[in-house]
Each structure stands twice: as C-alpha cells, then as structure tokens.
Amino acid sequence: MTATSLETEARSSGMRRFVRRVLFSEYLVLWLSVLYFLAVLPFVPQMASVEVLRNILSDMLPLLVVAIGQTFVLIVAGIDLSVTSIIAMASVVGASVMTGDGGYLAGSPLAVPAAMLAMVTVGLAIGAFNGFCITRLGMPPFIVTLTTMMFFSGAAIWFTTFHTTTSSIANLPHGFVVLGQGNIGGVPNSLWVVLAVGILAHIVLARTVLGRRLYACGQNRRAAAVSGVPVRKVIAAAFLISGACAAVASILYTGRLQTGTPILGQTILLDIIGAVVIGGTSLFGGKGKVVWTVFGVLFLVLIDTSLKMLGLSLFSVFAIKGAVILLAAVIDAVRTRFAARI
C-alpha cells in the first residue's frame, strides 16, 4: 500500500467507523422509524394524536403475530407462504363453530373456547403438514407452502359456502366479540395477547434449547446435524410455530371484523415477509430476532398510515412500500459485504 492510500485510509476510517456503527446497530430500523415519524410530522401533525397512534398499534398487532411466526421459519432458512391461507381457514372454521347462524356449537357456553381451539388446531395442522413435506419428503419450502397456500385459500372459500350464502360467516357470539374489543386494566385484550406471544417467542429464541437449535439449523445445517441437533424436528417445529402464530392472528382479525371470512389476510402475505426482512432477519437463515420483527412491522405500518394520511393514493403506498423493502434488502446486502471485510 502506498503512503497516499494510507492517508486516505486514515481519513476515511472515522467516517467508515460511523457508517459501520449505524449499519450494524440492532436498532437501525427503530431509529429509522423514529426518524421517519419526525420527518412526516410537519406535514401531518395529526400523526401524533392519540387516536392515530392507537390505530397504528391496532394495525400492528395481528400483523406482528404472523410476522413473529414467519421469523422462526426464516431463521431456519425456510419460508412460509401459507400463513395467509391459515388465517383465512382458521377464521372460517372458528366462525363455523361458534356462529349463531347454525354453528356447530351455537349457543353453547363452550362455543367460544372450542372455536378458538379449533382455530389454533387448524394452524398447527397446516404447519405440521408443511413441516412434514419439507423435512421428511425433502420438498422445497417455497413450493410446499405455495401449494398449501393455494389449497387452503381455496378450501376456506369452499368451506364458507357450506355455512352461509354470503361471503362471510357473521353473527359471532357476543363473548368472542367482547374478547376482541374488551380490555383489561385499560390495555386492549388483543395487545395482551400479542405481548404474550411476543414475549414467549422472544424467550424461546433467546433463552431455550430450541431457540439455539433453530439458529444452528439456519446457520449451518450440516454442522448442526454433526453436533447432534435433531435438524428435522427443529425445522418442523419452526413451521408448527408459524402455523400457530397465524392462527392467533386469525383470532385477532376475526374478533376485530366480528365475522369469519375467507378473504381475511389475502393481501398481507408480502407485507408479512417484507416486514420481517426490513427488521433485519435474513432470508438465508441463522439471523433474526423478535424485536427486529417488531421494528420491521412498526416501520411498515408507520409508512402505510402516514402515506394514507398524507392523502397519497394507493399507488404511492404500494410503490413506496416496495421501495422501502428493497432499500432494507440493499442495506442488508451491504451490511453482509461490510461484515465480510472485517
């Protein structure tokens, strides 16, 4: 290396250190969210109102639950495209159990818990099927979950036709609706649920044996197998968790809409994956955290809300969302290349 290049090296190293610190910060996306919030505030001051903030929160909640499940799958280097169909399927199955219009358990005091159990079972069953095909039959996750997505999206619509002539199953019991809209100690029930799921997921990933194994399978599957990690079971577990999370999200969405409908969640698949990736979880596995996903979802919902409030049309919401996802991915690629240089 020549003297001049050493000098420029020294001059740029301070800058480079700063860039590196920002890029590698765990909270990068949170800072970006805050920055973004402050930047749009002058244009839409009502963003800071309690009502809007509450809306942002309530928009975040169900999306966050699915995204947390997706985080597990991405950590093991998989992908789960079937989550939206699980939301739809669970919604109509749950509604068919408890609806007052000829539900299986209409009027029974057990209707609501049974319906919720059925919804979670749907999620677990579809997740288990995905996991089985991927780990035991050796099929690629993308295609397996793509076909389950197509199948159960269709199945949810079909199933609905047995229970109603309209496009959704309404007349859900009061108990269920109250669950969705009530609050405990001033905190909405749905927030309690999401907090519980989030904390549980965080603990599983950060503190338990399963968590360590999930990361290991995503980082280096062969090394994990040599070290005695039951790779197949661990990967199947990730898909089960994703299914269960989607079912919980379905409970939240169904409660909010007060109907069971098969079109629930149809359009949010790309939001889910986008949010997780924006948070910093890698599509190639081994890297991801629940808090990152929280930030990713926050960022996406923030952008969504602000764009709508700015009075921007649907087109800009779409385009800007896409640009943001792309930017996040580029930052991640740059990060990875920076990391390789250390």
Binding site: V209, Y215, Q219, N220, A223, A224, S227, G286, K287
Partner: peptide
C-alpha cells in the same frame, strides 16, 4: 462446512453439542 457456525459466536459454537446438559428441567 460441518464443524462450525462461522457467523455465530464462540460461546454458541462451543455450547451447540451440549445444550441438553445445560437446560432447565421443564421449560428447557
């Protein structure tokens, strides 16, 4: 390829084969 998780920490690598031995009985 088969020995290490190159992007994980030393601790995570060393612990990988012994996680069961360091897990609490119920919640793991």
């Amino acid at each position: 390829g088969e020995g290490l998780m190159m992007h994980a920490t030393i601790t995570d690598n060393i612990a990988l084969a012994s996680l069961d031995e360091y897990a609490s009985p119920w919640a793991r």
